Amino acid sequence: MGTWRDRRILDLFGIEAPIVLGPMAGPGTPELAIAVCEAGGLGSLPCALLSVEQARDGIALIRSKTRGPININFFCHVPPQTDAARSMAWRARLAEYYVEYGLDPEVTPPAAGRRPFDNDFCAVVEEFKPEVVSFHFGLPDKSLFDRVKATGAKVIASATTVAEARWLEAHGCDAVIAMGVEAGGHRGNFLTQDYAAQVGTFALVPQVADAVSVPVIAAGGITDARGIVAAFALGASAVQMGTAYLFCPEAKVPEVHRIALRECQDDSTVLTNIFTGRPARGIINRAIRELGPLSSVAPAFPLAGAALAPLKAKAEQAGKGDFTSLWSGQAARLGRELPAGELTRVLISESLAKMAQA
């Protein structure tokens, strides 16, 4: 059995294996984080869809079940102003589906939004002092960032370009997540809105590794040991894996999503903005085919989801994922249905064995 040749992330976070659980808002649960922590990786709890109280309860549960370091993840988007005309146009675009499902197109119940990092969330970080705090869509304002750093937490964030990686290092990040376009879920871009020019993991990781002095965590399309070993060869010190863990029983994934993941092929996913208003990679379904994948009518992030929520609920009741955001990376077909702890241990063992053969 081999050893990890690059220990920068291991030493920085105090973990045994350089595997970071992707913080997937929705599917990510305390149980999933606990299992990864106990297996030696860095468990992550996503808080974008949680209330402050839910975040506090989730962190407390993790702390009660594991002594391993944990990562608490937050979004850093700026909440948009409501655009009444655009909202009306979006609802008009969805009206035919409301009629199909026997819903009143004039009634749109409020949907859960995504809460950006704020003073209340920062107070939770100060209370629990997680070893790692990660951000998506850039970083919070300096006053909040400084409070997080004052707790002793290591701060990491996603970069989708070399310029974003340099920006994150210059603004105090302890490590950078190089997020290739293969990754499932929302793109982490914040300096560019040019999605056509987004970079693949294989090209992005070595360029980011050359551009910054902090350790690099590779993310996007990494689902098995081959991807982990390749990421290290490209200059990464660790990997962040999300889609691989969607197959685990600890992940909060509706059955329609699990079925879609099992059937997913290499060309089954696209970037789409119709579910939230911001491009994210998911499995193609009816909504994506007929409304997108990218729509200029969809309200700004995260407002697009409100009008889709009733359709999602009705379709899922009928056993269909037609209006569900089926987030997934491009390598889902390599996923294995194992408990999260067992999966982590298998990935570690297989990766070390491959490295020893190199």
Rank of each mutant, 00 (worst) to 15 (best):
W4P: 11
R8Y: 01
R8K: 12
L10N: 07
D11S: 10
A17P: 00
A17S: 12
L21N: 08
A33D: 03
I34L: 04
G41M: 03
L42F: 01
L42M: 07
G43P: 08
L45C: 05
C47V: 05
A48G: 13
L50W: 10
A55N: 09
D57T: 09
R63G: 09
R63S: 10
G68R: 02
I72Y: 12
H77D: 13
V78C: 10
P79Q: 12
T82G: 04
A84G: 04
A85F: 14
R91G: 07
A92I: 14
R93G: 09
A95M: 11
E96H: 15
Y101A: 12
G102Q: 08
L103A: 12
G113M: 14
R114F: 14
F117T: 02
V124E: 14
K129E: 14
K129C: 15
P130W: 12
E131L: 07
H136Q: 09
L139R: 03
R147D: 09
V148G: 02
V148E: 06
W167Q: 06
W167D: 12
A170S: 14
V176P: 02
V176N: 06
A178K: 04
G180Q: 06
E182T: 05
G184T: 05
G184M: 03
R187N: 09
G188N: 03
D194Q: 11
D194L: 10
D194S: 11
Q198V: 13
V199P: 08
T201P: 06
Q207F: 05
V208G: 03
S213I: 03
P215Q: 04
V216K: 03
I217R: 02
V229H: 07
A233K: 08
A233Q: 12
G235P: 12
A238P: 07
V239Y: 00
V239P: 00
P249L: 10
E250N: 10
A251L: 02
K252L: 14
P254F: 15
V256L: 10
C264K: 03
C264H: 02
Q265S: 14
T276D: 12
P279F: 05
A280M: 09
A280R: 06
I288W: 04
E290D: 15
L291D: 07
G292M: 05
P293Q: 12
P293R: 08
S295T: 14
S296H: 13
P302S: 12
L303Y: 09
A307E: 08
P310M: 08
G319V: 08
G319P: 00
D322P: 00
F323A: 02
F323S: 00
G329I: 02
G329A: 07
Q330P: 03
R333F: 13
R336C: 06
P339W: 01
L343F: 00
R345D: 00
R345Q: 10
L347D: 04
L347A: 05
I348H: 02
A358D: 10
